[in-house]
Design a protein around this nucleic acid. Structure first.
Lengths: 151, 151
DNA sequence: GTCCGACCTCAACCGCGGTTGAGGTCAAGT
DNA sequence: ACTTGACCTCAACCGCGGTTGAGGTCGGAC
């Protein structure tokens, strides 16, 4: 299971990237197919990932952990520059968007928590007029298919 | 699309339950198969839901909206009494559990938000030592299969 | 008694986020 | 040169949370 260091210090094999990020190789290949990360290929068709891919992967997993779907993460990552390596300001811009999203999610959870205790707790849960049932502020109604999944 | 009121005022047909809860009939049948709700059957094999099912459904959807999987919701609902109609205290007990869970989720989100701004914002995102990458306080590692999904 | 909409079951299918396995190639160490 | 493990592709499969459609029955109104 020991991974040889790739000759060019700036590039990682999929095994190295997997070890460092903790993300299975199968998932990394999947992310590449989905356009979330990309790689150069060696003459022998093997993937080589540039250094900043590690950051992207960390960002992807961190975002996923809070329930953001890959499609949304892909869109967010699209704001990173194409040609050059993303710098501090690029990532800061990205995280700024996420901050707003996270704040919204936090507010939703707090509201649900409070409604639960006030509303179920007091026995008023009458669905038609109850705040609990009507917390349907649909923020990201992305098309047909499995919509309304706690995202 | 007008639904006739069911003769016995205390029981609802699936159409009525669907209309009142806003949940598709197909989903209600699915929930029944999954053991989240239950129904009496008429002589003609049609479902009749007791009044409190509306509450259960509202609880299910509210929980789902914040990303709690059905299996966990089923477990939670299992604390409601079998024979009798759940009363205020039963629901209060249930919501108390959820409150803890929700608080945990809220803290997780807040931590992620803060890490994002501090960590990505300042450019330190070095994965091995970064708090963002290591927010792996695995709270509910439910077996193999799609684990680690932002739940 | 007949009509029609609401109901029933069952099987197949969907998007998501991957994993697993078969079968084959690449490349570093000896 | 050969071995061995890391890599490749492609297709099939998984759990989740449902939806869709075919084919059939129920039951309230006329």
């Amino acid at each position: 299971m020991t991974h040889h260091l790739s000759p060019r210090a700036k590039e990682a094999t999929i095994g190295e990237l997997s070890d460092r990020s903790g993300v299975p190789q199968s998932a990394l290949r999947f992310y590449e197919r989905q356009g979330l990360i990309n790689s150069r290929r060696t003459t022998g068709n093997q993937r080589r990932f540039s250094r900043d891919t590690l950051r992207r992967v960390a960002f992807i997993r961190a975002s996923q952990r809070v329930g953001i779907p890959l499609a949304a993460i892909r869109e967010a990552l699209a704001v990173l520059p194409e040609g050059r390596t993303p710098n501090r300001a690029d990532w800061a811009r990205l995280s700024e968007c996420w901050r707003n999203d996270l704040n919204t999610r936090i507010r939703r959870l707090e509201r649900l928590r409070d409604n639960l205790t006030e509303c179920i707790g007091c026995g008023c849960l009458s669905i038609d007029k109850c705040a609990l049932a009507n917390t349907d502020d649909r923020l990201g109604e992305r098309g047909p298919g499995a919509r309304g999944l706690g995202v």
